[in-house]
Structures are given as structure tokens and as C-alpha cells.
Amino acid sequence: MSFRAWYAVHKWTSLVSTLFLLMLCVTGLPLIFSHEIAHLTGASVEPPALPAGHAGQANIDAIVADAQARRPNDLPQFLVAEADEPELVYVRMADRIDSEGLTAFYTYDARTGAFLSEYPLGQGFMDLMLRLHTDMYLGLGGTLFLGFTGLLLAASIVSGIYVYGPYMKKLRFGTVRRDRIARLKWLDQHNLLGMVTLVWLLVVGLTGTINALNRPIFAAWQATELAALAAPYRERPAVTGALAADAALRAARAAHPDKSLSFMAYPGNGFATPQHFVAFMNGNTPLTSKLLSIVMIDARTADIVASAEMPWYVSTLMLSQPLHFGDYGGMALKLLWALLDVLSIVVLWSGLVLWWKRRKVTAEQKLASLRGVPIAVAE
């Protein structure tokens, strides 16, 4: 491709995506620290200290019964756990077992069964940031559009490398011409910070695109692998009445003693079958804690009827989600992610400023200026 073509790709992919990418960087900054902010604001709670010598786990059925009593017209959809907080267990409630939305999200002490808190759904600053970052309040269409901007970002970065190449022939890498006109200083700073954040922007852009495919990816898994597991039981009637979630969870843990519960779907949910619980288990190492194995448990007998690993495309999604927010290396990586996020905001904003100031300059004039040929540009 010619310089003119690379310049056009860089210009238009940047212009189309920059405003949305700025929004994503600004909203993504607090989301990097979502866990810490949730605890600071009281949206999430710390597990209480127990007397020395206390051991054991609460009965899950008693926990679910308490959640059911709090919302008698709703149904439990999922039991949820966090690998880094084994003392807590969460119950997700909805108006229907197969509903995509939820009506309540309760936190319980997994050791005593005590109710601890109800997460404030659809409220507060963090909920606003999350919705803007994931779908701009536009549902799946908004999510897919933001995923597309991640691809535009990748095209902008690759073309930007080629456009930046001629500068490397004239200037030492990292040079900022502070003694020249303001526009050149802005350009040098934009190029320098763009190169510094290049790899990070590619990572978060591509992982953001993968994350935007969350629903289609799980829909594909439900239509293929889960449907195949459920096929032998298609003629059996759906289970009804009280369900022994505690026995099902104990069976899943016994089958995978080296793993922890991520979440368990109730029968009739889109992540389970009408006759089975499906427990999603993750490992106990930094890498395997992001990957899922599934255990299908008969809801009547608590017998395990199938176990399987998630397919590669679901594993790719599960690995990309924490990487997108720097949730692999503790606080140190989160701070690095935050710094790179701020630098990226500067890159995006300076790119807008440069376009506004030089929107009448052609690609040929820009190339001529890089070769040292003077051009006349209006301020």
C-alpha cells in the first residue's frame, strides 16, 4: 500500500472510532478498580471474622430458601462464587428461570449461611460506567458496535505504525520538538505516546472485541455442546418443586476436588437443562482460575451424569475478560493498566486536536513535510 492509502486508513479509522474509544477509556478507568470501589462504597461486603476453630460450610438449600423468602415471586437462577473470596456465596434471582435479566443479587456468608447484603442493581456511579462501557444502554447492538470499534482501533494502530515510519528516518525515537510550533509538539507527543501504548491498546482493543461477543459465544456453546449433553434426556420431564442444590454442589466439588465453584445454573436456565444443574468449576492457579470445566448433575438424584471442558472459543473469552481489565497480577498490574489508560486518553485526545488543526492538509503535503519540503499550512 502507498503512504496515501495508509494515511487514509489511519485517518478514517481513527476519526470514526476515537470518540467512542475515549468514552471506553474514561469509563474503563474506574472499572479497573471495580472490586476495590465496590468494597469502598459498600456495594460489596467483606466476610465477617468468625471465632477461632469455626469450620464447615453452610447448607446451600437453607441459603436459597432465605433468598426465596425475600422474593417469593421470583426464582433462583444461579449460585455464584468468587475464587478469591471463598467465604462468600451469591444467589441471583429473576422473575423467570430463563430470564436474561435479574431482580436481586444477594450475598451470604458461605460458612454460616448468614445474609450479608443485597447488591444495588441498576444504581450508582459504577453501574453507569459499566453500562456505558459495555453497551451504551443499547443492548446487544450497542455491545457489538463497541466491539467493532476495537477492530477499528487495531486498524488505526497498524496503519499508524506505517505513517509514523518516515519520522523515524529524520528524528531520533522519542524526540519532542518543543522549540517548534505547538502543532508539531502535539504531533510528536501523539506519536510518542502512541508508540508507548501501542501494544496495550492492541491488547485491550482485541480483548474488548472478544468480550463484545460474549452472548453470541455462549449462545453457540448452548446450541452445540450443551445441547449434545442434554440430548439423551430430552424426553424426560422437567424437574419441579424444591431442588437439592446443596447435594448437587457437593457432588460437583467431590468430582473436582482441585477446583472451585464459579457458578451453578439451576434446571431450566439457559446454562443448564430442564432436568439438571450445571456447575461451572474453575482451577486454583492464576491461569486455570480463568478457565471453566462443567459438571452436569441430575437434579433429582444429585448424580453426576456428564463432565466436560469448555471449547476453545469459550476459553478464549474467559481468558480475555480479566486481561481486558488487568485482573491477572493484583494491584500492581491494575495500576499499570490505569497508567496506560490515562496515556491512551491523551493519545486519543491529541489525535482529535491534530485532525482539527490540520484537517485541510492532504496526504501528499504531509509526506512532503516529512521529507523536509516546506509547505504552507494555515494556523
Rank of each mutant, 00 (worst) to 15 (best):
K259N: 03
I375A: 13
G141S: 11
G326C: 09
L75R: 06
R359V: 15
A247D: 12
R172I: 15
Q275T: 10
L116T: 13
Q222G: 11
V163C: 08
L79E: 05
I161K: 07
S344C: 13
E118Q: 09
L75H: 07
G101T: 15
S17F: 02
L132D: 04
P216A: 11
A220N: 08
N269T: 10
T13C: 08
A81M: 14
G205P: 03
Q275R: 06
S315W: 08
T112E: 12
R250N: 11
R180M: 15
T197N: 04
S17N: 04
G56C: 09
P267H: 01
L138P: 00
A368Q: 13
I297P: 01
I294N: 06
G241R: 00
N269V: 12
L243P: 04
D74P: 01
T18H: 03
V353D: 02
K170P: 01
A43K: 05
A227C: 10
Q77V: 15
T224W: 02
R234S: 14
V373L: 09
L132I: 12
S293W: 09
G113W: 04
D109E: 11
I217R: 00
H133A: 14
L336N: 03
S289V: 14
D327T: 07
N211Q: 10
P257Q: 07
A252W: 04
A212C: 04
M1H: 09
I181W: 01
R71M: 13
L206F: 05
V278W: 02
L370R: 08
G241C: 04
K366W: 11
A43P: 00
R250W: 08
F145A: 15
L144N: 04
F33N: 05
R359F: 13
A65G: 07
L130N: 08
F125K: 03
F105M: 10
G351D: 06
S156P: 00
M264P: 03
K357T: 15
L152C: 07
V64A: 03
T209N: 02
G329N: 09
M23A: 14
V26P: 00
T288S: 09
A69G: 12
P48S: 10
D246Q: 08
G101H: 07
P257Y: 09
V373P: 00
V239D: 04
V89R: 03
L249S: 12
S44E: 15
N284F: 04
Q123T: 11
E85I: 15
L50Y: 06
Q77F: 08
G160L: 13
L339K: 00
P267N: 05
A154N: 08
H133R: 10
P120E: 10
P120D: 10
P30M: 14
P274D: 10
T112A: 08
V314H: 01
D61H: 02
A182I: 14
N269M: 13
F105Q: 06
P257D: 09
Y266T: 14
F280Y: 14
F20Q: 07
D109V: 12
A220Y: 06
G42R: 01
D179W: 01
G139N: 11
K334Y: 12
F277S: 04
P374D: 11
F105P: 02
T316N: 05
E87K: 06
A231Y: 02
T224S: 08
E82G: 00
L21N: 05
A65H: 01
L144E: 04
L348F: 01
